[in-house]
């Protein structure tokens, strides 16, 4: 077990995600966008998709499956980008 597969790594990730949530809220307030529950839900979902994509690519590389890393990377990145654009448009509506 290394630092990145330890429980302490996930503790640090928890702190980082808390900071990201706070920063995102401030950023949206500055833009004049009100964050309500479903917007947070969609945003959280997108964070999971993006995180999955990154972790999948590097896990595949780590286990010696470069084809899975490249093909999975392309497919999941496209899903991440497309869903990101769609979700951003929904979240960014000011009314």
């Amino acid at each position: 077990m290394t630092f990145f597969t330890s429980g302490f790594f996930w503790f640090i990730q928890g702190i980082l995600i808390t900071v990201i949530i706070l920063a995102f809220q401030v950023w949206m307030e500055d833009k004049g966008v009100k964050m309500i529950w479903w917007k947070w839900f969609l945003w959280g979902l997108w964070i999971l998709v993006a995180g999955f994509t990154i972790a999948f690519i590097f896990t595949s590389l780590g286990e010696g499956e470069p084809t899975a890393a490249v093909k999975g990377g392309i497919i999941f990145s496209l899903i991440t980008i497309t869903s990101g654009v769609g979700i951003w448009r929904l979240i960014n509506k000011k009314k």
């Binding site: 990145f4 597969t5 790594f9 990154i54 972790a55 590097f58 780590g62 010696g64």
Partner: peptide, 11 residues
């Protein structure tokens, strides 16, 4: 960090 986690989890 997730990238490093993934790489380490894979190997």
């Amino acid at each position: 960090g997730l990238g490093f986690f993934g790489y380490e989890a894979g190997r």
